[in-house]
Amino acid sequence: AQASVVANQLIPINTRLTLVMMRSEVVTPVGIPAEDIPALVSMQVNRAVPLGTTLMPDMVKGYA
């Protein structure tokens, strides 16, 4: 199954992502693919992302 990017902590709005904030997990619905984690580093989220939330393309500025 495809692993997705999941928030490893609460990520406040406009925060630049770092590796420690993200983990890969097989979840439904599928979000951003886990292999994109390196590309997500330093991108900003456009909303607060609670712990355990799957990151979707529309949550990350410049990803989609």
Score class of each variant (00 low, 15 high):
L10K: 11
E25F: 06
N46K: 06
Q2P: 15
Q9H: 07
V60D: 01
L10D: 11
P38N: 10
Q2T: 14
A3T: 08
L19A: 11
A1I: 13
P12V: 05
P12E: 13
V6K: 04
P29N: 05
P57Q: 09
V45D: 01
Q9M: 13
N46A: 10
S4I: 01
T18K: 06
A34P: 06
V5W: 02
G31P: 00
N14S: 14
V6A: 03
I11D: 01
I37A: 07
I13Y: 10
V6H: 02
V60G: 00
L17G: 02
L51G: 10
M21D: 06
L17D: 02
R47F: 07
L19S: 12
V60N: 02
Q2M: 06
P12M: 09
P57T: 07
L40N: 00
N8E: 08
V20Y: 11
T53D: 11
V60M: 04
M21C: 03
N8A: 15
R47G: 10
P33S: 10
M22D: 02
G62E: 10
A39L: 15
M43Q: 09
V20G: 13
G31Q: 02
V6I: 14
A7H: 01
Q2N: 13
L19R: 10
I13N: 07
R16P: 14
S24C: 05
A48M: 12
T28P: 01
T28A: 13
V26E: 12
G31C: 03
D36L: 11
S4N: 02
S42F: 11
M22G: 01
P33G: 07
M59C: 04
T53P: 01
A1E: 15
I32Q: 00
A7R: 01
M43Y: 07
E35I: 09
P33A: 07
L17E: 02
Q44M: 14
V41C: 05
V30S: 08
R47A: 15
A1W: 06
V27E: 01
D58Q: 11
G62V: 05
I32H: 01
N8M: 06
V49C: 04
L55T: 01
L55S: 00
A34E: 10
S24D: 06
P38A: 06
P57H: 06
E25Y: 05
A39R: 15
R23Y: 06
L40A: 00
S24F: 10
L55Q: 01
L51H: 13
D58I: 07
V27T: 12
T28H: 12
A1Q: 13
T18C: 04
M59G: 03
S42L: 09
N8H: 11
L19H: 12
A64R: 15
L51I: 12
V5M: 02
A34M: 12
D36W: 09
P29S: 04
T18D: 12
I32N: 01
P33Y: 12
M21P: 02
Q2Y: 09
A1V: 13
V26H: 11
T53F: 08
A39D: 05
M59T: 05
A48N: 13
V5A: 07
G62K: 07
P33K: 11
S42P: 00
G62D: 13
Q44R: 09
A48F: 11
I13P: 11
L17Q: 00
M56R: 10
Q9D: 08
V45W: 00
V5Y: 00
N14D: 15
A1G: 14
G52H: 12
I37G: 12
V30P: 12
P29W: 03
T54G: 02
A39E: 07
V26Q: 06
N46L: 12
A34L: 03
L55E: 00
N14G: 12
A48C: 05
Q44C: 04
A39I: 14
M59I: 06
L40H: 00
K61Y: 07
R23N: 10
T18S: 12
A64W: 03
M21S: 05
T54N: 02
L51Y: 13
V5E: 01
Q9A: 11
K61Q: 12
V45Q: 01
R23H: 08
A48S: 15
V20W: 13
V60Q: 01
S42R: 07
R16A: 15
N46M: 13
A1N: 07
I32M: 03
T53C: 04
V45M: 14
P29Q: 08
V27R: 08
P29K: 08
A7N: 02
M43L: 14
V30K: 05
G62W: 04
M43V: 05
A3S: 12
E25H: 11
P50D: 12
V45L: 07
V60T: 02
A7C: 03
L55P: 00
V45R: 00
V6N: 00
Y63N: 04
A7S: 11
N14H: 13
S24Q: 14
P33I: 13
M21Q: 04
P50C: 08
V27K: 06
L51A: 14
I11N: 00
N8W: 05
A39G: 08
R16L: 14
V6Y: 02
M22C: 03
R16D: 05
E25A: 09
P12D: 09
I13R: 07
A1Y: 09
E35S: 13
T15Q: 10
M56G: 04
V49A: 05
V60K: 02
A34Q: 09
V6S: 02
N46Q: 08
A3C: 14
P29D: 06
T28K: 04
M43H: 15
I13G: 14
S4P: 02
G52W: 05
P33V: 15
V49H: 01
I13T: 11
E25Q: 08
A39C: 06
N46P: 03
V5S: 05
A7Q: 00
Q9I: 14
M21F: 05
A1D: 15
D58S: 12
L19T: 07
P57N: 05
S4E: 01
G52I: 03
M22S: 01
Y63R: 06
V49K: 00
R16M: 15
T54F: 02
A48W: 08
I11H: 01
D36E: 15
V30W: 09
N46C: 04
R47Q: 13
D36N: 14
M56T: 12
V6T: 07
A7K: 01
V60Y: 00
I32L: 05
T53V: 10
D58L: 12
R16S: 15
L51P: 14
M56Q: 11
L40G: 00
V20T: 13
T28E: 14
A3R: 05
V41M: 08
R23P: 02
V60W: 01
M22H: 00
T53G: 11
S24H: 09
I37H: 03
P29V: 09
S24G: 07
A64E: 13
L19C: 08
A39V: 09
A3E: 12
P33Q: 08
P38T: 09
V49E: 02
R23V: 06
K61L: 13
A7T: 14
V6P: 01
V27L: 05
M21K: 03
V41N: 06
Y63H: 06
E35L: 10
P50F: 10
P50Q: 11
M22T: 01
V5K: 00
I32S: 00
P50A: 12
S42V: 04
Q9G: 07
K61E: 14
E35P: 07
A48H: 14
D58A: 13
V27Y: 02
T54H: 03
S24T: 15
I37K: 09
R23G: 09
I11E: 01
S4T: 04
M43F: 09
M56K: 08
P50H: 08
V45C: 03
A1L: 11
V6R: 03
A7P: 02
S42T: 12
P29G: 03
P29F: 03
G62T: 04
V5G: 01
G31M: 01
M43P: 01
M56C: 05
L40I: 15
R47V: 13
G62S: 06
S24A: 14
P12R: 05
P12C: 05
V60F: 06
R16G: 14
Q44G: 05
L40Y: 02
A64Q: 14
A48P: 11
Q44P: 08
A64C: 04
L55F: 08
V41T: 10
V49Y: 01
L10T: 13
T53H: 15
N8C: 05
Q2S: 09
V5D: 02
Q2E: 14
A7G: 03
M43G: 04
V45T: 11
T15R: 05
S42M: 09
P57L: 03
P33E: 07
A48V: 14
P12L: 12
G62Q: 12
L19W: 10
E25I: 03
N14K: 06
P57A: 14
P57D: 09
T15C: 04
E35H: 07
R47E: 11
V27F: 02
R23Q: 08
D36Y: 12
M56V: 11
A1R: 03
T28D: 15
I11T: 02
Q2C: 08
I32V: 09
T18R: 08
G31T: 00
N8D: 13
M56E: 06
Q44L: 07
V30H: 11
D36T: 14
A3Q: 08
V60S: 01
G31L: 02
G62L: 05
